[in-house]
Design a protein around this nucleic acid. Sequence first.
DNA 1: TTTATATCCTATTAAAATAGTAGTATATTT
DNA 2: AAATATACTACTATTTTAATAGGATATAAA
Lengths: 150, 150
Amino acid sequence: MIPKRSKYAIKALTALAKVYRDKQHLSIASIAEQERIPRKFLEAILLQLRNEGMVNSKMGANGGYFLVKHPDEIMLSTIIRSTGGPIALIPCVSLNFYEECVECPHEELCGLHEVMLEVREASIHILSKTSLADLILREKKLLRKSEKRP
Amino acid sequence: MIPKRSKYAIKALTALAKVYRDKQHLSIASIAEQERIPRKFLEAILLQLRNEGMVNSKMGANGGYFLVKHPDEIMLSTIIRSTGGPIALIPCVSLNFYEECVECPHEELCGLHEVMLEVREASIHILSKTSLADLILREKKLLRKSEKRP
DNA sequence: TTTATATCCTATTAAAATAGTAGTATATTT
DNA sequence: AAATATACTACTATTTTAATAGGATATAAA
């Protein structure tokens, strides 16, 4: 499982993506309310994303956060990783949270290692081809579908 | 990430699978040493797997654990699930650890939900077609390969 | 029948990760 | 100047996971 932190980040960035074309920004408070994320927690998450260059902010009255890149270019895998969420199921096959197995003398000879690598590749394949823009598009499609057959 | 508990379980059951055809059993102590798993922790894990019917045990001197089913029939997904490891990345798409999203009014309309479902399906597809026997086979192949090109 | 060896079982503790909060400083707009 | 918003540091609380302790029970072999 990825931490709530990562999920909150995806939700918040999606909200920012929705106002991207109008060059608008959103305040922490408004995102927190809209997405039902604890305000102070969201503040910490956005601050971190800012320091990593994924978003930028404007201080002071009428300030807020906005995306630096186009929603097409921001992939779920990137968001998950930069908020500390490992995608792999075990540490010895994680790209960003790698840890050697204490019990494996040779991990190249470990069958479980090999299978877990395949799982990771399958997951990353999906998450690194899905952008914030894709997420929004999917939601539009789901909404249309539900309106046709209610 | 799945808990260490799940990984230890897979390692221990694989050890039991290796002696299955000879109708042999292994003691907790010997598995713990061989797989470098803390003995008492392994004891708790095997006890639970026994209560779920995945393994059986023989008490007393020269006792130990053995598989109840053929290694072909024991799938990684089953082991992970019964040792508390969720395969899904977020609770709202987990089969066995499902939790409703507080923030989603309609999860059928959530784009992230849809993507995470795909990730889960891809992972489960691999994990539920891979058995303990497959794991052993993979290791044999990896070993052969490494001996050819050392 | 005694001794050694193993599992059974419950309870407890330790450590780490995660989630969330507090409070003050700083910047910007009106 | 007042109101509003982010910046930043530090802290706390909660939960989960990992691991251990220790005695009860069963079995085999000496």
